[in-house]
Design a protein around this nucleic acid. Structure first.
Lengths: 344, 344
DNA sequence: CTGAAAGCGCTTACAG
DNA sequence: CTGAAAGCGCTTACAG
């Protein structure tokens, strides 16, 4: 910068002003500076700028894992959206553990990120607040006790209720809720690997309980595609078969489709399946997957809005935003010749 | 750091030495410093450290898009692997364009990343070299002219030849190569949206040409899942039907499966389909997808090795690494009652 | 093993 | 509209 200043016959201050646009510079001086910048191939040193400004232009994004359609699609949207705000995104994978999430918060502070978007499944609001200090954090996810941090959630209960309701409407009476903690642990917010599962299960259970002839079992095989596959196989081979599956994520649902196929069960002819999340792949599976779409764009907008607000005003009241949801019906819940539920 | 030094009764130098471990410090002093660090809740300022050291501990990763299984799974592996080297990863999405890739290189320099992993589809080696200057870059992808930069590739030609060979062995004679540039443009390395497609198409064409009775058409619907769906539909409805599809990526293949199903064609009964990439989803589709697995772990190891080597020695000779490949046969190419190809 | 001085490359705050 | 001085928080290089 000193070289540029010398070449342009001005002070480094003026170079800085031209480059940052923070103060007006006469057109003539400006041109001289830009010419010198061009000639010398000068580029600002961002480390120095960060040190002086106290901001890095980097935001952390902590997700359980990138190799899952839901989180990678979320990451793609956020990276793109934040780039428009001049913010770059460092990705951390937490492995869906408390420790991983705590490490992400710590790293964000050490590395002086301007903020952190935390897809929290292990940490509660108290933890986040204690760990984050003055780091702006927006939590994505569903710990009900997140009231003390900025938080973007989705309609987990309502969405899952609608999903289970769809199966019941289509005549299913013996359901499985894949990804659900045991029924008797559904009422205590706890360590079930993310409250999204608990809340969605709660919604599904509500719908089932509203239909006297219906019953449901809770199954928690894990969260990976392979876990869904295994679970689908077991469901197909169980002594006591089901006629409908509410999978609490699309990834699990897609696995279940495969697992059922392994055992020769056909969807939707033998069993109906509905998922949750509306990942891209759900629209192109065979059969295509009915699912709950949680308003991805609205959620990303809300995350960015809350984050920028918090960065601008550290003392602002924490805000919670809940996105809308839409139930998308596709092939996996449209039996060809099956009669509808009694009473409809 | 000055406060810590004062509290521990030492100089800032000594604090720095304790924290970085760069110079030996007596156990006693060390304990005093760590005690003060703990008490005061001190954390190093990474911007200052970067400014002084000239390294940021950040590596850029530029991929066409994160919302694709192949690239998100790659990103997940790299983020995890580089974290073990103490390096964080900033993700940039290039949109598979020259401009996006050039911007990623520029950003990496401006932000003083320690290196860049570039999944290049638009830029050639000359461009990369010119833009990168002294920035360590490892290219992932298949521009044949990448010889002048460190480069990790895969067995595109050989893998695709094997994939097409499998269909031919199974008796297919009228193939479609989905994702292929027009046959007559296959021999000129050019702007076909990434040379991986061209090289894979070349491999497939070789296999087809080796079987006199076989023919193949090239189709380039795009690269998205939806593009594959559309293409599958069109293939199913074409006047001149095919009996085998080589899709040049798994994403396209999964789309094709869906598109064929839309039109009532069954895989593998009516048509065989093989993909390329071995994304996770390929193992759990219905039918499960035969595919070429390019040795993901070997490739990630190679990327990290080349990157660290280049960071350590800017003058090292550029190196090219090609991963192994394995053809994985699954349901999509296993017709139940179909006879094998003549001559086998 | 420990430290005083200088400086990495910017921008803030003060001044004109 | 422009600039001289100071300092952001570290670590390098020199010294003992």
């Amino acid at each position: 910068m000193r070289d540029v200043a010398a070449a342009a016959g001005v002070s480094t201050m003026t170079v800085s002003n031209v480059l940052s646009g923070r103060r007006p510079v006469s057109e003539e001086t400006r041109a001289a500076v830009l010419g010198a910048v061009e000639r010398l191939g000068y580029q600002v040193n961002v480390a120095a700028r960060s040190l002086r400004r106290g901001r890095t232009g980097v935001v952390g994004l902590a997700v359980p894992a990138l190799d899952s359609p839901y989180f990678s699609q979320l990451a793609g949207r956020l990276v793109e959206r934040l780039a428009r705000e001049g913010l770059r995104v460092v990705v951390e994978q937490t492995g869906a553990s408390r420790e991983g999430e705590a490490a992400a918060v710590r790293d964000s502070r050490v590395n002086a990120y301007d903020g952190l978007v935390l897809s929290a499944v292990g940490l509660g609001a108290g933890d986040v607040r204690a760990l984050a200090g003055d780091l702006p954090v927006v939590a994505l996810g569903e710990r009900q006790d997140l009231r003390r941090v900025d938080h973007v959630g989705m309609a987990n209960v309502e969405g899952a209720r609608a999903a289970a309701g769809l199966l019941l409407e289509r005549g299913c009476r013996r359901l499985a809720v894949v990804g659900s903690p045991p029924w008797d642990r559904l009422d205590e917010p706890g360590d079930h690997g993310g409250d999204a599962f608990r809340l969605r299960a709660l919604g599904a259970r509500e719908a089932v309980r509203a239909v006297p002839a219906a019953s449901a079992r809770a199954l928690a095989p894990g969260t990976l595609l392979e876990d869904g596959v295994r679970c689908g196989r077991e469901l197909a081979l169980a002594a006591d078969p089901v006629d409908g599956v509410v999978a609490l994520t699309d990834t699990l649902a897609l696995g279940v489709l495969r697992g059922l196929a392994d055992a020769g069960l056909r969807v939707p002819d033998d069993v109906l399946v509905v998922g949750f999340d509306d990942v891209r792949e759900a629209s192109a599976s065979v059969p295509s997957l009915s699912t709950v779409s949680p308003g991805h764009d609205e959620m990303v907008e809300a995350v960015v809005r809350l984050l920028l607000r918090r960065m601008a005003d550290p003392a602002a009241e924490p805000e919670e935003v809940f996105g809308p949801f839409v139930l998308l019906e596709r092939e996996s819940t449209r039996p060809a010749g099956r009669s509808l539920a009694p009473g409809r």
